[in-house]
Amino acid sequence: MNKLSEDEIGNKLKNLNNWEYKDNKLVKEFKFRNFDDSINFLKLIQPVADSLDHHPDVHIYYNRVVIELTTHDAGGITELDFQLAEKIDDLSTHVM
């Protein structure tokens, strides 16, 4: 996968729901009712991430989950990060 340019990233961000580009990563915070919902969300993400062979960095804060996406091998954001971000957004509707 080739690293996307700043312009490409900016254009693709318009198609995502509330994701931000910062520190060379796509970042989004998801809020849930409780810790169980946060963990269930991660359980939904795991098989999707495995199927893409692309895994997010995850921070859990009780009822909040912060997801960070970047393609380390490419040194930045690639199309794969946007694919996973879209799938994660779809999965979040099953928990929220």
Rank of each mutant, 00 (worst) to 15 (best):
N18G: 01
F41N: 02
F30L: 01
L16Q: 13
Q46F: 06
E20P: 09
G76Y: 11
L13I: 11
L16S: 12
L84G: 10
M1T: 10
E79C: 03
Y62D: 01
N63M: 05
L80Q: 09
D50H: 03
Q83M: 12
N18K: 13
L4P: 02
A74G: 03
T70C: 13
E29M: 03
Y62V: 06
F30N: 00
N24D: 15
Q46A: 15
V95T: 02
S92M: 03
D37Y: 00
F41S: 04
H72E: 06
F82C: 11
D53I: 04
F35W: 09
S38K: 03
E79P: 04
L52H: 12
H72Q: 04
Q83N: 14
D23R: 09
L91A: 11
A74Y: 08
L80G: 06
L84P: 12
S51D: 15
I88A: 10
V58H: 01
N24R: 08
K22M: 10
S51G: 08
E86Y: 14
D23L: 09
L91D: 04
N17W: 03
L26W: 10
L44R: 12
I67W: 07
V66F: 03
D90V: 00
I45P: 07
S51N: 13
L91F: 11
M1W: 09
K87N: 09
D23T: 02
K12H: 08
K87E: 14
V95W: 07
S5I: 14
K87G: 10
Q46V: 14
S5N: 11
K87P: 14
L42M: 08
Y62K: 00
H59L: 15
K31V: 11
D50M: 01
D90C: 00
N63H: 08
S5D: 13
I88Y: 09
D50C: 01
D50S: 10
D57G: 10
E68H: 14
K3H: 04
S92A: 14
I67K: 04
K22R: 14
L80R: 13
Y61P: 03
F82R: 12
H54A: 11
F41D: 01
I9F: 06
L91E: 07
H94W: 01
F32C: 08
H94S: 08
T78W: 05
W19M: 13
V58T: 04
A49D: 05
V27H: 05
M96K: 15
I60W: 02
W19A: 13
I77K: 09
T78A: 08
Q83C: 06
N24M: 12
H94I: 00
D57E: 12
D90R: 01
E79I: 04
L16A: 09
V95K: 04
M1L: 11
D57A: 10
P56V: 05
D90E: 08
T71Y: 06
S92W: 04
S92R: 01
V66E: 10
L52E: 13
V65W: 01
M1Q: 09
I60F: 00
N2A: 03
N40E: 06
H54W: 14
E68T: 02
D50R: 02
N24S: 14
K12P: 07
E6W: 14
L80K: 15
Y62S: 00
L13W: 13
D73S: 09
N63S: 12
T93A: 07
L13E: 07
L52Q: 08
I45M: 06
